Simulated scan of single mutants.
Amino acid sequence: MDEQLQKVFNNISFSVNAEKQTMDLTVLPHGETAPISFHLNYKLVENGEETEIIVEKIASDRIWVDEIVHLWLEKSNFQYRIPQNLSRIVKMFLK
């Protein structure tokens, strides 16, 4: 995990349901006593040799976090082009 993320989050758990194309993420932000959970809906888009992951929806178990994430998704689409050397591995887990 990235060093900066390790400074901010403790006890990260992550699971993927490739059949439903969902991810669940739980983090404990540094200094907080209760974890924050996220549920993501994603899709993989293959265009020739390129593969992108697009987050279509994110929901959180905290109302204020959920609102921030919702506003963020409205203003910018979360699309990430998967590097070609990693796409085969990523697709094994997400597809």
Rank of each mutant, 00 (worst) to 15 (best):
M1W: 11
L5K: 07
L5Y: 09
V8N: 10
V8Q: 14
F9G: 05
I12G: 05
I12N: 10
S13N: 15
S15W: 01
S15F: 02
V16P: 03
V16C: 10
V16L: 11
N17C: 12
E19F: 06
E19H: 13
K20Q: 14
T26W: 01
T26G: 04
V27K: 01
H30S: 15
E32F: 15
A34T: 10
P35M: 05
I36W: 02
F38R: 00
F38D: 02
H39A: 09
H39I: 02
K43P: 00
V45S: 11
V45K: 14
V45E: 12
E46Q: 15
E46F: 08
E49A: 12
E50P: 01
I53D: 01
I53C: 04
I53N: 03
I54H: 15
V55C: 09
E56P: 03
K57G: 01
I58E: 09
I58N: 08
A59Q: 14
S60P: 07
D61K: 00
D61F: 00
R62W: 01
W64H: 13
W64K: 08
D66Q: 07
I68V: 13
H70L: 04
L71N: 14
W72I: 00
W72L: 02
K75C: 03
K75H: 10
S76V: 06
F78D: 06
F78R: 06
Q79A: 12
I82M: 07
P83D: 08
L86E: 02
S87V: 00
R88S: 10
I89S: 15
I89H: 07
I89K: 13
M92C: 09
F93T: 07
